[in-house]
Amino acid sequence: MTAYVIRRLLLFVPMAIGIVIVTFCLLLLIPGDPAAVLLGQEATPEAIATLRRTLGLDQPAYIQLFIYFGNVVQGDLGQSIFQNAPVSEIILGRIGATLELAIVALTMSAAIGITLGVIAAMRPGGIVDASAMVLAQLGISMPVYWLALLLMLAFAVMLGWLPAIGRGEPLLSAFGMAIAGNPAPLLDSLSHIALPAASLAVNSAAIISRLVRASMLEVLNEDFVRTARAKGVRRRQVIWKHALRNALLPVISVIGLRFGALLGGAILTETIFAWPGLGQLTIAAISQRDLPLIQGIVLTFAMIFATVTLIVDLLYAVVDPRIRLK
C-alpha cells in the first residue's frame, strides 16, 4: 500500500512540470497585446512600447519561460498587470470561493446521482427506472448557462425563495458560527450557494446516475449479492451496503473527473451568479489579457485537478482492497 502511494506521489512531479510548461506555451499563442489593452483605445504607440518593455513582454519566449519557471518553483507567480498585486495573493484570496462551490456541487451531484442510479437499478425496466433515466437524459442535455439563468428566474425572481447573486459567509466559518449558537450566517450561506451549486451539479449528477445504474445492474447479478441474500440480509442492506460499495468502484474515478468539469463550469456559473471566485476572475483576466494572472489561474486549476486525480487514485486503493496488492 505504501509503495503504491509513494509511486503515485512521485508521478505527480513530472506531471506538474509538464503543466507549467504547457500552460506557458499555450498562453503565448493568444493574440492581443496586454500593454495596449491596459492603456486603452486612446493610447499612443510609444506609450504601448514603453509599457511592453516595463512588463518584460519584449523578451524572447524561451527566456520568458525560463524566468517564469524559476519563479514558480519559488512560489512566485508573477505580478498581475492590471491589479498591480502578486498573482499568488490574488489567487489565494479567491480560490476558497471556487473550491467551496465545486466541492458543494460535487457533493450534490454525487448524492443525487448515486441515489437516483441505485433507485433506478432496484427495479430495472420499471416506471421509476424509466423516469430516472429520462431525468438523467434531460440533465445531461441542459447547458449550464441556460440552466443557471432558468434556476435564477424560477427561484430568485419568481418565487423569491433564494437570493439571485452573491455569496454569504464562507461555509466553514458559517458552520463554526452555527455550532457556536448562531445559525443565521449558515442559513444565509446555504441559500446563496444553492442555485450556483445546483446549476453546476445537474450535469454531473445525471452522468453519475447513469453510470451508477449500469454498475449496480452488473453488480446485482454477481454471486456475492446472492450470498448476502442467502444470509438473510435485508434487501435494503443488500443494495446499499453490499452492492453499492462494489458498484461505486468505477464511479469513483468518474466523480474525480467530474470535479475537473465542475471547475471549468464554475467559470460560467460564477459570472452569472456573481460568485466571487477564480472563475469570475478568469473571464476578466482573459478579456484584459492579463497574462501573468491567466497563467497563474490556469496553473492553479490544472494543479487542483491533478491533485484530485491523485486523491481519487489513492481513494481507490482504500475502497478496493484488491488494488493494494499491486
Partner: peptide, 28 residues
C-alpha cells in the same frame, strides 16, 4: 413474505455456493 423469508435465510436454512471466490464480497 419477503421479510419473513429473510429472517429464516442464513438462520434456519442456509446455502453453500459453488464458487467461493465470487460468492464472497471482495471488499469486505
Amino acid at each position: 413474505s419477503e421479510r419473513q423469508a429473510e429472517d429464516l435465510r442464513g438462520n434456519r436454512i442456509a446455502m453453500i455456493f459453488q464458487e467461493p471466490l465470487t460468492a464472497l464480497n471482495p471488499v469486505m
